[in-house]
Amino acid sequence: MNVFRLAGDLSHLLAIIILLLKIWKTRSCAGISGKSQILFAIVYLSRYLDLFTTFISVYNTFMKFVFVVSSLGTLYLMYLKFRATYDHNHDSFRIEFLLVPCVVLALLINHDFTVLEVLWTFSIYLESVAILPQLFLVSKTGEAESITSHYLFALGSYRALYILNWIYRYVAESHYDLIAIIAGIVQTILYCDFFYLYITKVLKGKKLQLPA
């Protein structure tokens, strides 16, 4: 554990809390992509199966548990409790276009051809693109509420901080994992356009609105 990883994990946790609070307080999931949330739930469920096989630390187990439970809770709020507020007309991204390539890639490029390892690899690939339906939804409606922008900023920062963690670990521990690193870089690049809008607009008190 180093400061970059801890900051990344906390940023990830913050994103999840912001999203749940937004939905709970406003009693609405307007502007949130259910498709992205389904993909994140698949990511956590396929990656954290090692909860049953490997113990790393109390911290590790606790965070995995929180991510799995909160992603299922988010799905419950979106698709059951506040279903009427779900913006499904704009949330039209076809997730099979992400799922199928990630399955194929995980079968082809992995560290070890075992069930758990291929599922882990699949989850890493899928996480890197899981935000696309959300970004697609924002681009379709042309705007995002500030609370949604804060959520996206925290979620995007997490993998960016992990890149610093990976640089640190390579230097300090000679440890590296190319699959995680390359997917993490792809994931962070997908947020760059959003980061730019967030810094130039949302932080100056303006609403995130895309140019017409």
Binding site: M63, F67, H111, D177, L178, A180
Partner: peptide, 10 residues
């Protein structure tokens, strides 16, 4: 690459 038998990151 560095083969990982266990993934210690989240």
């Amino acid at each position: 690459s560095n083969k990982e038998s266990q993934h210690d990151e989240l």
